[in-house]
């Protein structure tokens, strides 16, 4: 009965867009590669230069953009649904900054322990999300209160990152990229454990989409439909923190992806179930970040803009528009 055929067509169309965006990302850069060179580089190794560029530079970066975009977007869907706040996202409510501080701390104190970075990021993200949620509940949980609590937590965490950067200048040399959110220095070593967390997190979110649907109806209604509200709220916030934390562990403080993409997906779907929203958000998030990253490294070539800066240029006006829309809704 749900508009399944339409949803399947949308998913297919978005997958096609993602493939095109990925091909564009692989071909564009300081050295432009044609489709033939791409294919040869990826398959038979007849073009050694193309092969090296692809395997060591563009492919890891493409995977990083795909994973960070999908992970942050799904995290945004979870956070917006659980907190019932369209203004919420991992960047806005301080989850990214919490993960960032924890990652920075780990880099400063355990510089060789790259594999534990996603875990450290998760701990920071989880602490931040619980802190913001606790503050907002105690203060009455209005939408604006939640956002302001997030801004305060974000500022505190960012101050912590800057303090570490001052105390450990050598280790935190890539701080500017990290704070802006960038994918230029991404390595396979950092990407692998985070990729695992993101893929498992998205799979778990898709599996629990029915519970998320019910939780989105509000606490009283969800409880009357038999959902263990406190358990699932905790579970979804934990998943959101794991997804955002894993993305931050290799992409830095990449804001606004988790805010913009779920709204774009909802607009395209026109209000369906959360399973299709999660699937579409992960596809659109991946496509969005791949396109943004390709643009960020080619627009001002030979200079490269951290992708987080470009995303911020798009995200801030979008956030302001959402804020005004919320105000209008309250006055209607």
């Amino acid at each position: 009965m749900e508009n399944n055929k339409r949803n399947i067509l949308i998913i297919i169309a978005c997958t096609a867009c993602l493939v095109l965006a990925a091909l564009m990302a692989l071909s564009q850069g300081a050295v432009r590669l044609s489709l033939t060179e791409l294919l040869h580089g990826l398959t038979d190794g007849s073009n050694e230069t193309a092969r090296r560029i692809l395997l060591h530079v563009r492919l890891p970066r493409l995977l990083a953009a795909l994973l960070a975009g999908a992970g942050l977007s799904v995290s945004g869907v979870l956070i917006q649904t659980v907190l019932q706040n369209p203004l919420a996202s991992p960047g806005i409510i301080g989850v990214n900054a919490g993960a960032g501080l924890s990652v920075a701390l780990c880099m400063a104190l355990l510089p060789s322990a790259i594999a534990v970075l996603p875990l450290a990021a998760f701990v920071g993200a989880f602490a931040a999300v619980m802190l913001v949620y606790g503050i907002a509940r105690r203060a009455g949980a209005s939408r604006i209160t939640l956002v302001l609590s997030g801004v305060a937590i974000s500022s505190l965490m960012t101050a912590g990152i800057n303090t570490l950067a001052t105390l450990y200048p050598d280790i935190m040399s890539g701080l500017r990229d990290f704070q802006n959110g960038g994918l230029s220095g991404v390595s396979t070593g950092r990407l692998t454990p985070a990729a695992l967390v993101i893929m498992l997190g998205i799979a778990a979110s898709l599996t629990l989409a029915g519970e998320l649907d019910v939780l989105g109806l509000g606490e009283t209604t969800a409880a009357s439909l038999g959902l263990h509200v406190r358990l699932y709220r905790f579970l979804f916030l934990t998943l959101a923190a794991a997804l955002a934390g894993a993305a931050v562990s290799f992409a830095g403080l990449l804001g606004f992806v988790g805010l913009i993409v779920p709204h774009m997906a909802r607009f395209v779907l026109g209000g369906g179930g959360k399973r299709v929203l999660i699937a579409l958000s992960s596809l659109m998030g991946a496509t969005f970040l791949v396109l943004c990253d390709t643009a960020a490294r080619t627009i001002f070539s030979p200079f490269e803009l951290p992708v987080g800066i470009l995303v911020a240029y798009l995200g801030v006006p979008f956030f302001l528009w959402l804020l005004l829309r919320e105000r209008r809704k309250r006055h209607d």
Partner: peptide, 14 residues
Amino acid sequence: RTVPDITVESLALH
């Protein structure tokens, strides 16, 4: 009740 951004049909199905 909260008013989620979903269709009437989705609400009934949920």
